[in-house]
Simulated assay, not measured.
Amino acid sequence: MTITRLLARPMLATIFVAGGINALRNTEAHADKAKKVTDKVVPAARQAVPGAPIPTDPVTLVRINAAAQLLAAGALATGRAPRLSAAVLAASLVPTTLAGHAFWAEADPQAKAAQKLQFYKNTSLLGGLLLAAVDTEGRPGLAWRARRAAADVRREARQVAKDARRGATLAKAQLT
């Protein structure tokens, strides 16, 4: 691991540790804000995955989101499953941002400006998390490996076909 990754991952995770702790300490306040989003998302999620035990209570959902952020932030900070943990944090950031920083619903210009700034900050964090989620640390990713394996198979198949033709030509020459 490079020094950049060693420093950047904990730095990126810090806001999620603080946010997760804050959400657990102030669950009721966060649940009030989250209710607008959960009222729309939970029915859609239940329809998409009918058998899944998806809670409807905003307090429970806030606690689940906070726990997911704390666990994923800890994993990202320590370099354990960094791609997966960055993806989990990115997924948890979207509803958090929509519920907590709905600047479009603010009437007060100062409150609107503050919420817009927080919304943009979260958008920037989402971009960083997406980059972290696809970071292969300089090693080839699965797509590259699959293309390489396919090219290797094609090359070997051509060689086998060439060897077979050569063998057939030699066999034909010996028979005649």
Rank of each mutant, 00 (worst) to 15 (best):
A73I: 01
L129K: 00
L175F: 12
D135R: 05
P43L: 10
Q118L: 14
N22C: 03
T123C: 10
L61W: 11
D163V: 05
T96W: 00
P58V: 08
A31T: 06
Q47H: 11
A143G: 07
K40E: 09
W144R: 07
A90G: 01
R158H: 06
D57E: 07
G127C: 03
Q174L: 12
F103Y: 11
V49P: 00
P58L: 07
V42Q: 06
P109K: 06
L126S: 00
L61T: 07
I21L: 15
K116Q: 05
H30R: 12
E156T: 14
P95N: 05
V88Y: 00
S92L: 01
L126C: 02
F16W: 05
R9A: 06
A91S: 01
G167F: 07
A150K: 12
T2D: 13
P95I: 02
R46Y: 08
A86G: 01
V153F: 12
A151I: 10
D32F: 15
A29L: 11
P43I: 10
K172F: 15
L126I: 05
T27P: 10
K116T: 00
K116L: 05
A67C: 10
P53K: 13
A105S: 11
G127W: 03
I3F: 14
D57L: 04
A102E: 13
S85I: 02
P10A: 06
T176N: 10
R83C: 01
A29H: 11
Y120N: 09
Q118H: 12
A143P: 03
D163S: 05
G74I: 05
S85D: 01
T169Y: 06
P95Y: 02
A171E: 10
A146W: 09
L70A: 05
D152I: 15
V134M: 10
V134K: 08
G20F: 03
M1V: 12
T97E: 03
D163M: 01
N26G: 02
A44D: 08
Q47V: 00
R63W: 08
S85T: 05
I3N: 09
G74P: 03
D108C: 03
F119K: 00
T2E: 12
I3D: 06
A8Q: 08
P50F: 04
A45F: 09
A68D: 04
T123A: 14
P10D: 04
L98S: 04
I21N: 03
S92T: 15
